[in-house]
Amino acid sequence: MEAKQQVGFCSVCFHLSAEPVCEICSAPNRDHNTICVVADSRDVIALERTREYKGKYHVLGGLISPIDGIGPDQLHITQLVRRVSQQSIKEVILAISPSVEGETTTLYVGQLLKPFTRVTRIAFGLPMGGDLEYADEVTLARALEGRRDLD
C-alpha cells in the first residue's frame, strides 16, 4: 500500500519513480543523445539488467490496441515526440515486442520520429543457445529478415 502511494511516474520518461524525475533520467553519466522506447516499465528493468545500454528511456505505457480502446492519445507518444524534437537526440531505439500491437506501435512511433532523428529497432531472431535446426519457421523468417553484413 505504502509503495503504491509513494511510487509515481517520472515526468520525463514515465518510468516508475518515487521522485518527480527518475534516477536514470537524472544520472549525469548516461548518454543523453540516445532514447530507448519501450512499452512498459518492466521492459526498462529487463534492459537495465543487461548493463549494456547507457542511454535514456521512454516508457509508452502500453501498445496501440483499438480492441482495448487504446490509441496513440492514451500513450505517452506526444511527450516522446516533444522530447525528440526539442533535444538533440541522435538515435531512438524502438524496443517493442513483435506482436501485432507491438508492430503497429513500432511503425506508428517510427513514422512520427523519422523527420527528427535516426530511428532503429531491435533485432528479432534466435535465442542464445538455440539451435538453428530446432528454430520454428516464424522465428527463422524474422531472423532472416533482420540479417546484416558480416563485419
Binding site: 483499438p66 480492441i67 480502446g69 501485432v100 500491437e101 503497429t104 520454428d136 516464424v138
Partner: peptide, 23 residues
Amino acid sequence: PVYAYILQQYNHVLRQRNAFLKQ
C-alpha cells in the same frame, strides 16, 4: 502447421482493424 499461426495473426489484425474502423 505454420498456417495455423498465420491465420491466427490475420484474424488478430482483422479484429484490431475492425475495432479501429468502428471507433
